[in-house]
Computed example of a mutant assay.
Amino acid sequence: MARPISASTMVEILRAEGLTVHEVRDWRTHNRNSKGPWGPVNGVMIHHTVTSGTARSVDIGYDGYAGLPGPLCHGVIDKRGHVHLVGNGRANHAGLGDGDVLRAVINETTLPPDNEADTDGNRHFYGFECVNLGDGRDPWPEAQKEAIEKVAAAICRHHGWSERSVIGHKEWQPGTTDPRGFTMDGMRGRIRDRLRGGGGGGGGTKPAPPKPSYEPFPGSAFFHPGQRSPIITAMGRRLVAEGCGRYENGPGPEWTDADRRSYAAWQHKLGYRGKDADGIPGRSSWEKLKVPDVRD
């Protein structure tokens, strides 16, 4: 859970990932925010356009069509692997989907079947349309698949998410089939490898990653029963990554005993004992945990 990325930061992180980015018309102020909330954001959703041709696909992504005004996504990824940014804010791409899927994305757990349409996805997901007819025959060039991987990894890295925060439209909304032509499990594997520093499946020289920004220590008093913050979610995900997770469900935004036990395991891992390993974060252990900045 996090605040949406600003337009300037979106351009910065995508280019830092090695992507060619095109800014389309007035994309920085082009959105559907007047029709509903935008954020908190929880994940990245991948689609195919059911169109051919870059220019036509980008225009539809920006303008929409009769009955469904644009933007229809935040970016269009063409077959060359270029990213065309067409919207910044709420976009008409996800529609209503399964609230159980959203909870799994937030908790970064296995996705359940999408058998309901009870939750507004346009509020919670960045959306990227990929130029492809979606007929199972139109090819997916490696440059395009690598761009999907890079886009998703850049956003996940910024928010401190793992590859489990990336889903396909077909995993969200009953009856949808996009993206068709590659598996989302395979794409998540590529994203996971990139986030771990191994690059993806595309080869070539991997650009230097953007300089990470970490959440400053909020003070020990911040961590108390009833406290809710995306900082706690980000902390929990780092604890899981360090092998210290003691969660049956989550991590989530509310401070719980599972967070305390997980943090105590981290303190023990660092060599702290006694009252120094009581599960309440201190400055030294917090700075060593390197919790991603969630304030943007």
Rank of each mutant, 00 (worst) to 15 (best):
Q144V: 01
H124E: 13
D185G: 09
L195Y: 11
G199D: 03
L195W: 05
T205P: 08
W140P: 10
G121D: 02
R137D: 12
E149Y: 02
E149P: 02
V166Q: 10
R188M: 07
L195V: 09
R194Q: 13
G160H: 06
F182T: 04
K150T: 03
D185Q: 15
A147W: 03
P174W: 08
P207G: 07
G197D: 00
T183H: 14
G181Q: 09
E116A: 15
G189H: 09
N132W: 01
E163L: 02
D135M: 08
P141G: 14
D120S: 11
G199T: 01
D138L: 10
A117M: 13
A117V: 05
G197R: 09
R180Q: 13
T177N: 15
L195E: 10
E129K: 07
A153Y: 00
A153M: 01
W140H: 09
C156H: 08
K170N: 13
R180F: 08
N132M: 07
D185T: 09
H158I: 00
P207L: 00
H158L: 04
G168P: 05
K145G: 03
D135K: 11
G160M: 04
Q173H: 15
D178R: 12
I155M: 08
P141F: 14
G134S: 09
G203D: 07
K206W: 03
W140N: 05
T177H: 11
G189M: 07
A152P: 05
G189N: 03
I155W: 00
F182D: 04
D138M: 10
F125I: 06
R192A: 14
Q144H: 10
E129M: 13
R196W: 04
G134Y: 10
D178H: 15
F182H: 14
F128V: 12
D118F: 12
E171V: 02
Y126E: 07
H159F: 13
H124Y: 11
E146K: 14
G127Q: 01
A147R: 06
G198F: 14
T177V: 09
M187V: 02
I167Y: 01
E149L: 00
V131D: 10
G168A: 15
A147C: 10
